[in-house]
């Protein structure tokens, strides 16, 4: 690829816009596509790609936060408690990224992509209804409620230690791969802690900015964040994600989600293949 800076920037901006739009419509996030897009299509070194992707994750989180927080579903205390785990994990992940070979990062990336694709098409029941109060969650003031047409729905999170540990893993993967790790967060908040779907999605969007900022500082010092690359990626993904959030309520996303999951799985296999061959 011997494009000029102008051509390269426009192509990356357009691809990022599409990645942000699809990521937000399918709930997978823009970060999971942007790294393969840059490495496989443009042969960008995976470290620059991860740096740019991480920046776009912070932008999406901050840009969408106002709309999410106004809806009144997010649980601030759940978010702030779990941020201790995700931010420490993110710092560890960023250090790990500078120490392990890029081929290994590509393989881990591929595995996480496969898992994300699988969870995005598998319908999951909401486990939050009818949970009795939990002692530890009560002490930590994590119980909450949100508005429904039938009045306020009260919920009681549980399994705090398991959720906390899984959130550390989510932070670690975020710092290692430059993604939002939405799939692992769903595992921690929806599955382990039994937090209602709407609460966990909005709360994790709120948390991801802080999580990504925790590894971004380290990436910056290590020279992973290139302004010329991060600029079109950040602006493109954020614009796409914000547009996606606007059309999401009226969109029929089931077919799109399946198609996107299949595409992601194919990309994941290519990442693993290239990683094993040491070609990334």
């Amino acid at each position: 690829m011997h494009a000029t800076t102008l051509e390269f920037t426009l192509l990356v901006a357009f691809g990022s816009l599409l990645a942000g739009l699809l990521g937000s419509l399918t709930g997978l996030g823009g970060g999971v596509v942007i790294v393969p897009f840059l490495t496989l299509l443009f042969h960008v070194d995976i470290r620059y790609a991860i740096g740019a992707s991480l920046i776009s994750v912070i932008a999406t989180s901050s840009g969408a936060a106002a709309a999410y927080l106004r809806e009144g579903y997010s649980n601030m205390r759940v978010g702030m408690l779990l941020e201790v785990a995700t931010s420490v994990g993110a710092v560890c992940g960023a250090y790990l990224a500078t120490r392990i070979p890029t081929g290994a990062i590509a393989i881990i990336f591929g595995v996480v992509l496969l898992y994300s694709a699988w969870t995005s098409v598998r319908p999951l029941p909401d486990l939050s209804a009818g949970q009795p109060p939990d002692r530890l969650a009560g002490l930590l003031k994590l119980d909450g409620s949100y508005p429904t047409p039938e009045g306020r729905f009260e919920y009681h999170p549980r399994n705090v230690p398991a959720g906390f540990s899984l959130m550390y893993a989510a932070g670690l993967l975020s710092g290692l791969l430059g993604i939002g790790s939405g799939a692992v967060k769903v595992l921690a908040m929806d599955r382990a802690m039994r937090i209602p779907f709407k609460v966990s999605t909005t709360t994790s969007n709120f948390m991801i900015g802080v999580t990504a900022a925790a590894s971004a500082g380290i990436y910056l010092h290590r020279g992973y964040i290139d302004p010329g690359l991060a600029m079109p990626v950040m602006l493109g993904v954020a614009a796409g994600a914000l547009a996606g959030a606007r059309i999401l309520p009226g969109a029929k996303v089931r077919t799109l989600r399946i198609a996107f999951a299949v595409a992601i799985a194919a990309i994941a296999i290519q990442m693993i293949y290239k990683g094993v061959g040491g070609k990334i």
């Binding site: 000029t4 010329g228 690359l229």
Partner: peptide, 19 residues
């Protein structure tokens, strides 16, 4: 940046780290 660097080709294939 686009005005200043428009005729150059970006090099991201090799990781050098930022200055």
């Amino acid at each position: 940046y686009l005005i200043q660097y428009r005729h150059q080709s970006p090099q991201y294939q090799m990781f050098r780290g930022e200055p």
